[in-house]
Amino acid sequence: MAEVKLTAEKRTDFGKGAARRIRRQDKVPCVIYGHGADPRHVSVDGHALLMALRTPNVLINLDIDGKSELVIPKAVQREAIRGFLVHVDLLIVKKGEKVTVEIPIHTEGELAPGGNLLEYILSALPVEAEATHIPEGVTISIEGLEAGHTVHAKDIPLPRGTTLAVDGEDAVLQIVAAQTEPVEEEAAEEEAAPAEAAPAAAPEGEGGG
C-alpha cells in the first residue's frame, strides 16, 4: 500500500470554538493515539488530508515537529451536508504489527440471467493485516451466480498475510430473486368477459302505471 507524507502542527486550544477556528484556516483538527501514549492534538492541512483519505486505511507518515509518526485513520467525521472533514482520529502503528481494519468489497462479473439482485450483507470486510501492508480491498466474482446463492466470508480470497476478523460463516453477499409484479387476474378477466347486457326496456303500455 502507498505511504502518504503529511505535516501536522501541535495545538493547545480545544473545544468547539477552537475547532471552528482551525477549520476556517482550511485545516482539520485531529487526535493521535495508540501504543499507550497520551493522546496528542494536532491540525493537518484539510485538502492534503482529504486527498489522502481517498485511499481506504491509508498509511500516513506524519511529520510532527520534525519527528515522523506512522498512523492510519481510525475514525473520520464529516459534515453531514457538504461532506468536508470535521475531525479525524489517527491510530499510531508500527511496522510489522497487526491491526484490525475494514476493507472495501468489490464485485466483478455478471449474475445469471433472470434479473436477480445482488444484496450486500456487509459493506466492508473486517480483516487483520500488517499495519504497513493493509490491502486496499477484496474482489468477489459473482459471474453466473443464481438466486439463493450466498457468499460467505470464508469464500473470499485474501491477500497473503491477511486473515479474517469475522466468523468465516458470516454472510457477505447474497443473490436475491427478482420480484415479479403480480398479474392483475381480476382485471384480465374483466377485459376478456363479454359486457353484461343492459336490461331491456319494457314495451309501451307495460309495467306499473
Rank of each mutant, 00 (worst) to 15 (best):
R160K: 14
E186Y: 10
E128S: 13
G161E: 09
P126Q: 06
D38I: 00
A48G: 02
A195G: 11
G17M: 06
A129P: 11
A187E: 15
T7S: 14
A2W: 01
D63V: 07
I103A: 04
A112W: 07
D13V: 08
T7A: 13
V4L: 10
P29V: 13
I142G: 01
L53S: 13
E185D: 07
A18M: 09
R78Y: 01
D45P: 02
T7C: 04
G207P: 02
I156H: 00
L85I: 11
A198I: 07
T163A: 07
Y120D: 06
P56Q: 11
L62W: 00
D38Q: 13
E102C: 05
L164P: 01
V138I: 12
C30P: 05
V166M: 00
V93G: 05
V4Y: 10
K5V: 08
A188I: 14
D13L: 13
D89A: 08
V93I: 08
V127E: 02
T139W: 05
N61V: 01
I175E: 01
G144Y: 06
T180Q: 13
G15E: 04
E108S: 11
G205N: 05
T55F: 04
A131H: 07
R82S: 14
Q179R: 10
I140H: 01
H149C: 05
M1K: 12
G209Y: 14
G83R: 14
G161Q: 12
A75P: 00
V101L: 04
N61E: 15
H35M: 10
A112R: 10
L70Q: 12
I32G: 02
A8G: 14
E185R: 02
G36I: 03
I175R: 03
L85M: 13
E185S: 04
L145C: 01
V42C: 10
R20S: 07
K5A: 11
P29E: 15
L49V: 09
A147D: 04
E130L: 12
V101M: 06
I22E: 04
I134H: 05
I105A: 03
E169A: 13
C30N: 08
E190W: 08
